[in-house]
């Protein structure tokens, strides 16, 4: 197990290096006139401010020096300072990350409660009407844009019943109920849009397991259908579904950006969007890096737990 863990960690190093290059290079692509634009947009015109911004973006150094200075800062937990708010980027991330985590966690629960039972049902009753309905639904959910669902939920209940979703954020520890009342609508929508892929995957995995010899053996010796499913099929079929949580992480964060914007949830997505509109590049690159590394770490955790759940993987 430790050897497996060490191998996985080692394999992460080159990917992390390339990821840091992507963040670095994308920030170096900022054209020079953008700084003028930034200054104009924010009503600052003195020459000193231009130098200040160039220094803050590190543009006054040779490229390789810029990279090493930047990566050195990142490794010591310094992601720079917001250009307009004078707050360290790490502080802003500390305030927003837990909120996005909560949204993601709630959505994951919604996605799994919807997808697992329907996926299993779809596999057991393969090629029946129920299976077709479930599969059509998941195909449909893959095509519906999340922001449209969000817009519909905002507009129609308020036109028909004078009811609108809560848009005021309350911290969880101030008032858990008020917090959940705000988060539940975006969480359900995000969860629904993620459930399509999970449903398809659960169905495929269950079908695979149901074709195995040991299932036939169990059936032959007279194990009841429900026991067969719960004991023999589910346990083996659901292991690969765990990897899905890792695969869904990028999707979840992308969805969080959209739903945080619609429902005014002050998470990382909203932080990123606001930074983009203010051209606050230190914040943008900080969020960019943290999101990328976060997804990598989630995938590592999932891989490790996979090795723990399924001994076959460990010894490959």
């Amino acid at each position: 197990m430790y050897a497996y863990l060490a191998r996985r960690l080692l394999a992460l190093v080159p990917t992390l290096f390339f990821a840091s290059l992507i963040v670095f290079i994308s920030m170096r692509l900022i054209p020079g006139d953008v700084i003028d634009l930034m200054l104009a947009q924010n009503d600052i015109t003195t020459g000193q401010d231009r130098a200040r911004i160039e220094a803050a973006l590190g543009l006054d150094q040779p490229v390789y020096v810029q990279y090493f200075r930047w990566i050195g800062g990142v490794l010591t937990g310094d992601l720079g300072t917001s250009l307009w708010q004078n707050v360290p980027v790490t502080e802003q991330l500390k305030a927003t990350l837990p909120i996005t985590f909560e949204l993601g966690f709630l959505s994951l629960i919604v996605a799994l409660t919807v997808a697992l039972p329907i996926g299993v049902y779809s596999a057991i009753r393969q090629d029946t009407a129920g299976d077709y309905i479930a599969r059509s639904f998941s195909l449909l959910m893959l095509a519906v844009p999340g922001f449209w669902l969000g817009t519909l939920v905002m507009v129609f209940p308020s036109v028909w019943w004078r009811w609108a979703p809560e848009l005021e954020y309350t911290p969880f520890f101030t008032d858990p109920l008020a917090n959940l009342a705000h988060m539940i609508v975006p969480a359900i929508l995000l969860g629904l849009s993620m459930s399509a892929v999970t449903m398809r995957m659960t169905r495929t995995m269950m079908l695979e397991v149901l074709r195995q010899d040991y299932i036939r053996t169990a059936r032959a010796k007279g194990v009841g259908e429900w026991l067969l499913i719960a004991r023999h099929a589910l346990r083996n079929g659901l292991i690969p579904v765990v990897t899905l949580i890792g695969l869904q992480a990028p999707l979840l964060i992308g969805g969080a950006v959209i739903f945080e914007q619609i429902f005014v949830v002050p998470g990382v997505g909203l932080l990123l969007l606001e930074a983009v509109f203010q051209r606050d590049y230190p914040v943008i690159s900080g969020v960019f890096l943290v999101v990328g590394v976060g997804v990598l770490l989630i995938n590592l955790l999932v891989d490790v737990s996979y090795g723990w759940l399924d001994p076959k993987v460990r010894h490959e």
Partner: peptide
């Protein structure tokens, strides 16, 4: 690998911002 680590939408937003 590294490129695919970043969520599509976040990658797009960042590049478009530049």
């Amino acid at each position: 690998d590294a490129w695919m680590t970043f969520p599509d939408l976040v990658l797009l937003i960042v590049i478009i911002s530049v």
